[in-house]
């Protein structure tokens, strides 16, 4: 009989762990700051998780030289990206290793990510030949071209959007025609969750609490 009671205890603990996952996500969706970002999805397939679309944002690839804040990051480091609402969309303006103490304003938010890759860009401009150059150019906000700095590939935990089987292709088409964006909810600690998927300016799917 004691073992049977233990089994019930295990069930309670495991349901508690799952419940915490759900509760944490619900809090973000309910109270997080809404941030709309344009995306570039592709359509792979996962064995166990059905169809999903990989979402790549402009802030998924950042260069330390074009942004304020900290410059030193390594693979797997936490990074807090400061986003400011521009005239058209939210833009990254700074990178920090720790969450800044300054409270975010309505038009400012810090998103927590993790450095997936980090590599240096050469300061020396690649020689231009008849064949051209393979070195990618980075456009600074002021229009100058810069090839230096630390190039960061960042994951925010909102790179997958699960869709019913077969619908990934339609979303990929929307991507190809630049018709898609995502509305994120960002919590005060920087954790982001997908709140809405927007296609052609219309809400394609909204995440309800239940």
């Amino acid at each position: 009989m004691r073992t049977a009671v233990n089994v019930v205890l295990v069930l309670a603990i495991q349901l508690g762990l799952l419940g915490y996952m759900i509760w944490d996500r619900m809090l973000i969706l309910q109270a997080g700051v809404p941030v709309e970002l344009s995306v570039e999805p592709v359509d792979p397939r996962s064995l166990f998780r059905g169809d999903y679309v990989i979402l790549t944002y402009k802030i998924s690839q950042l260069n330390t030289n074009t942004l304020e804040g900290d410059d030193t990051f390594e693979r797997n480091d936490l990074v807090y990206v400061e986003l400011v609402k521009g005239l058209e969309e939210w833009e990254a303006v700074a990178l920090y290793q720790e969450l800044p103490a300054t409270p975010a304003t309505d038009n400012q938010v810090f998103v927590k990510g993790r450095v997936h890759r980090a590599y240096l860009r050469s300061n020396v401009a690649a020689p231009v030949t008849d064949l051209g150059t393979d070195t990618p150019q980075i456009d600074r906000p002021d229009g100058e071209s810069d090839q230096s700095g630390l190039e960061l590939s960042i994951k925010y935990g909102v790179e997958s959007y699960f869709v019913p089987e077969g619908e990934g292709r339609a979303l990929e088409d929307a991507r190809n025609e630049d018709r898609m964006s995502v509305l994120l909810a960002v919590a005060k600690n920087g954790t982001a969750a997908i709140k809405q998927l927007i296609v052609d300016g219309e809400v394609y799917h909204e995440e309800g609490l239940f």
């Binding site: 295990v10 495991q14 799952l18 996952m21 996500r25 998780r49 059905g50 994951k155 935990g157 997958s160």
Partner: peptide
């Protein structure tokens, strides 16, 4: 039950579009 617990973690992650490491 333990296997289903793992499946449920994946399904909750899928339901809320989590793609943590």
């Amino acid at each position: 039950g333990t296997a289903l617990f793992g499946v449920n973690i994946m399904l909750v992650g899928q339901t809320y579009h989590m793609s943590a490491q």
